[in-house]
């Protein structure tokens, strides 16, 4: 288990939810873990929305003091450096979407690479219009790697259609996810699905399936 685990990818792919979910998972196992929100791009649907849940579970949460406020300032707190310097704790990093979001990771990249104990997951939703194919995802991968100076170590297939997601819609993306993994020369680590769809999906595809809970609820949902 890598000490530093980074979630990156095209924006709107589900990185923030997966990062929160993974940090909660580590905390439940008794691991000392920090979750760093490095998203300086997205103004809405930030990790901070799940802050209460995370902190109750014992996750140390690091975020811009301006996140979710009305100050549209792309700033990161000095505390972010603790993900590198404090090696007694595990660190989960929610990287902002696309190359623009990943740029902020660049300042920590050399230290993360030198320590050499990290995993960086390319979170993919093949129902997002700009990552519909393996080739399109590969384009996003190259842009992010150039921006942050770190290489992805595996793909997580988080393909979903929001509330309309079915086991069939998930399994239909399995072939593309494997194709992408082959194209990039990195493994497909897992397919992540809403917990109630897990059994349905496991009947349709092989490989590791991880059930997840959605941590971002909206009052305007209908």
């Amino acid at each position: 288990m890598a000490r530093v685990v980074l979630f990156s990818g095209h924006y709107g792919s589900g990185k923030t939810n997966l990062a929160a979910e993974y940090a909660l998972h580590l905390a439940e196992q008794g691991t000392a873990v920090s979750l760093a929100d490095l998203d300086i791009v997205n103004p809405y649907f930030r990790a901070k929305d799940a802050r209460d849940v995370l902190e109750r579970a014992g996750v140390r949460f690091i975020s811009s003091p301006y996140a979710n406020s009305n100050v549209d300032t792309p700033a990161l707190p000095a505390e972010s450096y603790s993900i590198i310097h404090d090696r007694s704790r595990h660190a989960v990093v929610d990287v902002g979407g696309d190359d623009r979001g990943a740029l902020a990771l660049g300042r920590y990249a050399r230290s993360i690479a030198e320590e050499g104990d990290y995993a960086m997951y390319l979170v993919a939703n093949f129902y997002r219009p700009l990552t519909r194919s393996a080739a399109a995802l590969d384009e996003v991968r190259r842009e992010i790697e150039t921006a942050c100076a770190l290489r992805f170590t595996a793909i997580v297939n988080n393909s979903n259609l929001g509330k309309s997601t079915t086991p069939q819609s998930v399994s239909a993306t399995d072939r593309i996810a494997k194709e992408a993994a082959e194209l990039m020369g990195i493994p497909l680590a897992a397919t992540t699905v809403r917990a109630d769809l897990r059994d349905g999906v496991s009947e349709l595809i092989d490989g590791r399936i991880i059930p997840i809970t959605l941590h971002f609820k909206e009052e305007w949902a209908i």
């Binding site: 709107g12 129902y127 997002r128 219009p129 519909r132 929001g162 309309s164 239909a172």
Partner: peptide, 16 residues
Amino acid sequence: MSEKVLMKGNEALAEA
């Protein structure tokens, strides 16, 4: 794959 895609409102508007 399904004919639907998952989009932000801003993106859907632009694509349309």
